[in-house]
Design a protein around this nucleic acid. Structure first.
Lengths: 255, 255
DNA sequence: CGTCCGTTTGAGGATCATCAATGTCCGTGG
DNA sequence: CCACGGACATTGATGATCCTCAAACGGACG
């Protein structure tokens, strides 16, 4: 598997960096606040000051498709925040299968560890830009700044809900239902500028299958069924267009 | 479904409570610290001072089996920490099925909300004792005390890993493998004083099925197979005894 | 224009859900 | 103390779904 080349440049110190990188908005997190009123989810939740705090200890990196950012069971030195592009985290099972645990969109955090070791492998799907933050430095910062840490707490809580949702998806018996829920989730994950009906799918059918607990053939059959039934069309491999929203929602609402 | 009666008594103020409730050790959390060395997971991670901070805003409650602590889609006023007993959180799906998202053992936190509403229903399986904490008060406390918040961050991170693990379990095809992984997980969750081979299963077969994405019949068939193959015996409905650890690990290591 | 990788489609075998009936445990009341 | 009732659990038969193996198709790229 190709490592890819990490074109990384260290961001300058906190003081000078604001002027030096005034074009860089800095990292941001995507999460639903604990007690937010309905909606209000799209607004940025990090203040400019918090962004600068993170920027001060962050390295902005560009990674090419297929680049591996870290491997499972290796020392977890860094935590990452996605700024642009799509990545995935996965785990290779002893059975030879690969289990994709998450697709990472902008504002997603990844690099969580257990006992100081990464528990997944992270790989870029598209070209991506990420912020790399030293774990120790981040923890020290979070312990000093309760407000910033609170944003991370909200973020992890959000991911917890997503993980539980994935468990529900995978628990469904029918492949079509799983795929529909995946499309719905992807639609809400990637805040695309495209038409609402279009959902970009940068990952392969194999990745989708590994995420949904299906073989890639079953994913393909599910897409065919959705297309035959006129609910979703797939203009090309990396795009899904929802044609019949009513019927589509009926598939996903089963949960 | 019976509500059960909540025998709750408000804990006194932070100052007097130390003497008044000196026998009460206060809440504790179970989680693996981000950077802990191998093992070291069993040690309590809350300091006495942090326990007292939590006790000051906590109400200790005893709940009887089948009591419902909160229902999904109702306002989330409280967060709970389990002190004793076993509970479950679940979600009723439109299909009529019930999806159990988690079994809650002592030191587990539950009551996470989205947009101010609970996303699951929480119900006691056995008689249990829990700490009930006003969500607003807890958030205010966490925003003041970064160290205490950090323990919660570790806890939620721990639960995130568990949720991802459950997704992997549910994604497995064979019922026997799923059940074996469930037994292993339960074994590590409940720090019982019993012999290492024994795993207590306070929940029903139906609950296990709802957690694993299986019908209760499939769970029953899986227990039968494990027993026929001499790997695990089930002396009674609420106890599993691992007889052949080697073979058992081989089943679970497939992940 | 040809290769390669990813995708689609087909046939056969395995696993689980469902429906149904029987069996077991436990608390209740006689 | 025993008999009864109900909830829970086990077992069997059938049908649906998905996985596996296999082959053909398609676009991207040199």
């Amino acid at each position: 598997m190709p490592e890819g080349k990490h074109a990384a440049h260290r961001v300058r110190s906190a003081d000078s960096e604001h002027r030096a990188d005034s074009a860089d908005p800095g990292p941001s997190l995507r999460a639903a606040p604990f007690l937010a009123a309905l909606s209000g989810d799209t607004s940025p939740i990090l203040t400019p000051r918090q962004r600068h705090q993170l920027l001060a200890i962050a390295t902005r990196m560009k990674v090419s498709p297929r680049s591996v950012l870290y491997r499972e069971q290796t020392p977890a030195s860094w935590i990452f925040i996605n700024a642009e592009g799509v990545l995935k985290t996965f785990k290779d099972l002893r059975s030879g299968r690969r289990w994709v645990t998450a697709f990472l969109y902008p504002k997603d955090v990844f690099g969580l560890a257990k006992n100081g070791l990464y528990i997944r492998t992270a790989q870029a799907i598209t070209a991506a830009t990420v912020y790399r933050i030293d774990t120790l430095e981040l923890i020290a910062l979070l312990r000093r700044d309760a407000e910033l840490q609170y944003q991370f707490l909200c973020k992890v809580t959000h991911e917890l809900r997503e993980a539980q949702r994935q468990a529900i998806i995978v628990g469904r018996r029918d492949a079509v239902g799983r795929l529909a829920m995946f499309l719905q989730q992807t639609e809400s994950s990637c805040s695309t500028r495209h038409h609402v009906r279009d959902v970009e799918l940068p990952m392969s059918r194999s990745d989708i299958g590994s995420y949904l607990g299906l073989s890639l053939e079953s994913v393909s059959r599910a897409t065919s069924k959705l297309q035959r039934r006129g609910i979703v069309s797939f203009p090309n491999r990396h795009l899904a267009r929802i044609l019949d929203r009513t019927e589509f929602d009926r598939l996903t609402k089963a949960v």
